[in-house]
Nucleic acid binder design. Structure first.
Lengths: 230, 230
DNA sequence: CGTTACGTTGATAGGAATCAATGAGGGTGG
DNA sequence: CCACCCTCATTGATTCCTATCAACGTAACG
């Protein structure tokens, strides 16, 4: 499992008792909607889930894509209401941990409480990084960053870091990175022409990871924004 | 104080014992640096603090501006290291709560634990909103949104919601909103010409709050990004 | 085999970044 | 106390990136 880390086997047992394996859900299925009552958190076992918030006007902003080992649902802890919508991008299996159980165990096991804080902290850093990527990088850099992020996560999961399938559409990538799908498509084509990657529909092969890294670190737009650092 | 909410007076007492009032810090002083060891969290009592992350290349991204009653330092919970830098924008007073003490009291008082989760959840929603603002709105909308956010926060603090001082520079506003300081300046001037606000250096008067709200909700760029909602 | 959603590619336009020059305040030192 | 410096802010001219509009190709699905 994914949640525990530094828990005693005794504590692990307690945790294990409250974890439920859910039925697989299919592409397009909604795990929870923004506004739904918060009932607990989910751990992705297989597949991929996207999380998105939205404005009153109905535009949606994708917050992240979640792969096996990653946790979703923390957005509901604040007010017992989910602020995000979670949708499966592929057939996916999840574990569910009811919040009532979880907080019971948390009071018994302080280490689990800490672990929960860490998870929320991770969400926060993820969003910090996303903000940095969006505000400081051009389209090229954002997409290169995105591809490398996927690559490193797949590697951790034991899959190939250079050859993988994108579970999300161009449109979703664009939404996530603050770009239009046309721009995403164009950048991917450009990277292919430059020999950085090879694209076959949803399948990507990274040919030159160093060059991609270089694109990530390219000159930032709004050089002068740095001045506020001083 | 700011942290408690729904705590018993008994619990409050425990909390009170571990809160330390710190010496006032001055404009430009650094409360903690990214990379510093995490020692505890701060509550702003007076003044204003900015929080920022940065890339390896040194560009900084301002994450938020924190006013009295707001909490900073949660970014350090994940790895016991701060991921943000906190800088005073004005002379400011803060309370400090050491993390060791805090987690001790948390295990005794589950309600406080929940409160901490809620605080982190609030940080998360704040960043979701910021992302939405940056990716879905033009410069005008971002700045109008920013002004209205300040306005409502000042109102809560008991200050005027239509007349206030901006503790941060144009450059910092721009950094926060993903714009250059020139664009910020231009938009503010434009709003003034349109009779929405009046600017006097750092002092702002909101003349037409409804019109500002309208600017916030204006047509979004990248209309087609919505399609991924379907 | 048509329908539909998704993806690619091209042409154009618009908004904000960049470059540049000038002005206003605040602090320091003579 | 005034002159100077330096940072912050304003405003204008130009450029560049990416959104937008549009047409077409391709894959998946019933």
């Amino acid at each position: 499992m994914c949640l525990p880390r530094g828990l005693s086997s005794n504590d692990l047992e307690k945790l294990d008792q409250i974890v439920a394996r859910t039925q697989p859900i299919h592409k397009g299925d909604v795990l929870f909607h923004a506004g739904d009552k918060f009932s607990g958190i989910f751990a992705v076992r297989t597949g991929c889930i996207k999380l998105a918030t939205s404005t009153e006007q109905g535009d949606e902003q994708i917050i992240g894509f979640y792969f096996p080992g990653e946790i979703i649902g923390l957005d509901g802890i604040e007010n017992d209401l989910h602020t995000c919508t979670a949708v499966a991008l592929d057939t996916s299996c999840l574990c569910f941990i009811g919040f009532q159980h979880l907080s019971d165990v948390c009071t018994e096991v302080p280490a689990l409480s800490e672990q929960m804080f860490r998870l929320m902290g991770r969400e926060l850093s993820h969003e910090h990084n996303l903000l940095l990527t969006i505000t400081k990088k051009h389209a090229d850099g954002r997409i290169a960053t995105f591809l490398l992020s996927l690559s490193s996560r797949f590697k951790i999961l034991g899959y190939s870091e250079v050859e993988f399938r994108l579970p999300m559409s161009r449109s979703e990538i664009g939404n996530y990175l603050g770009l239009t799908f046309e721009t995403v498509s164009r950048c991917l084509s450009k990277f292919q022409k430059q020999g950085l990657i090879e694209i076959n529909h949803k399948y990507i092969t990274i040919l030159d990871i160093d060059a991609l890294n270089a694109v990530c670190n390219e000159t930032t737009p709004a050089e002068n924004l740095r001045k506020s650092a001083s």
